[in-house]
Amino acid sequence: MVYAVIMAGGVGTRFWPKSRKSNPKQFLNLFGETTMIQQTVERLNGFIEPENVVVVTNRDYVSLVKEQLPAVDPSFIIGEPIARNTAPCIASAAALLHKQDPDSVMIVLPADHRIGNPKAFKQVLKTAVKTARNEQSLVTLGIKPHRPETGYGYIQRSLEPVIDDSELPVFKVQKFTEKPDAETAERFLESGDYLWNSGIFIWKTSVILEAFKQQIPAIYKEAKALESSEFSDEDVHEFYQACPSISIDYGIMENADKVNVVPGDFDWNDVGSWKAVHELSDKDDNGNASVNTDALFVNSDGNYASTKGKKLVAFAGVKNIALVETDDAILVVNLDEAQDVKEVVEELKENEETNKYL
């Protein structure tokens, strides 16, 4: 059986003031009527049913998951008591699924990505699942780059496919590279053998558990103990307390012997900032976007507005500005510096009087 594992534990600091500790990015409806985590499940329709979806989230968000994804089996919602990065997150889900179905395949998906072409996405997943089963390998999805992007990690693939008898070619991963500088990103784009790292993984639960055994035995030991447990809150708590904090990329993928990549082009975006939201929103002829907002743009280009209440927002003579309003806060940020919102959140943490805005 094929299962989806949705990683939904992030706090979304770059999306303040809409994203808060009590209601982070993945539970917001930034695009359309449904939330990002709901869209993540919806785009799998016809490929994976909701009853075969596992969600790993912060323990404080379990009720939100149940509310927004009522078709997901409550026993398939893992509430993390503490943040331990993606490796323990994935190991806990692998233990749960391997206990139920030792031959299971898991597709690991972040809860907060945007995919504009679900049909093409499912076609790539089909090839990835087939590869994971037949090759007993770790599989990831790579995105064909359209520009020299410095905000994504990269995957260097083999020049020739290692599997060419499937509907889509499959390549061997040569190496993973962290976010490059502009000159390196340009070189990667020109080379033709580099892909953006999507952070989407496919493998058999038995294969990923063996990879943990070989590379992070401390997590493997705890995962096997969790697999033999009742998966109570106490069992999950003990697992996370005992695990080191490490990412799946650094802990497993970068040093694994057999990793394949399936290239895809399905209009993917990791939605990492308000700049990405602006890029993905409907815009006027001057690149201005307004979401549920009465906005007037005069001699203004490339702006974004999202406000609360019935009020008119006027932009005059400005470019690349985002104005985001909630009931208790207003953010004004240059979209080219949208990553600085994370620093705003850090500043709010410093002061007891401003903690209430987190």
Rank of each mutant, 00 (worst) to 15 (best):
V108C: 11
T131R: 01
I107N: 05
G153L: 03
K66S: 15
R59T: 10
V72L: 12
S137I: 00
L97G: 02
D60P: 00
V41N: 13
D164F: 11
G153Q: 12
Q123N: 13
A91H: 06
L64H: 14
N85R: 09
E42L: 06
Y152T: 02
V105Y: 00
R84P: 01
S63E: 15
P145R: 09
K130F: 00
K66I: 06
I107W: 03
I82M: 14
L97T: 02
S137A: 15
M36C: 12
G153M: 12
Q38A: 09
L96H: 04
A94Q: 05
E160W: 07
I143H: 08
L138R: 00
R114H: 09
V162E: 11
I115H: 01
Q39F: 00
H98T: 03
T86D: 10
A120N: 06
V53Y: 04
L64M: 14
V162P: 04
A71M: 13
K119V: 15
L125D: 01
C89K: 07
I37S: 11
D60A: 14
L69F: 10
K119C: 06
D103Y: 08
S104G: 13
K144G: 03
D164T: 09
K99E: 13
L44D: 10
D164E: 15
L159A: 13
E160R: 10
Y154S: 05
N58Y: 03
E80F: 01
E160C: 05
V139K: 01
A93S: 07
V108K: 01
I107L: 09
D112F: 08
Q100K: 15
S158H: 07
K119A: 15
L44M: 12
D165Y: 05
L125N: 00
A120P: 02
Y152H: 10
G142E: 07
F47T: 07
Q136M: 11
A111F: 03
L141G: 01
F121P: 02
Q156E: 15
S75G: 11
Y152A: 10
V55Q: 10
P161I: 05
V62G: 13
D101Q: 08
F47V: 11
S92R: 08
I143L: 13
M106Q: 14
A83H: 09
T150M: 12
R43E: 07
I143Q: 10
T127H: 01
S75N: 13
G151V: 08
A93R: 01
S166W: 00
A71G: 07
V55T: 14
N117A: 14
P102D: 11
V65Q: 06
R43P: 05
D101P: 04
I37T: 13
V62K: 14
S63C: 05
D164S: 15
I163M: 08
E42Y: 03
A94C: 15
V55C: 13
I107Q: 07
N52I: 00
Q156K: 15
V55L: 12
A95G: 15
K122G: 04
P148Y: 01
V62F: 08
G79L: 06
I115A: 06
S158M: 07
I82G: 05
D164C: 10
A94V: 06
E80Y: 00
D164M: 09
S92Y: 05
M106W: 02
V41C: 13
I90H: 03
V124C: 03
Q136T: 09
I107A: 08
V62R: 14
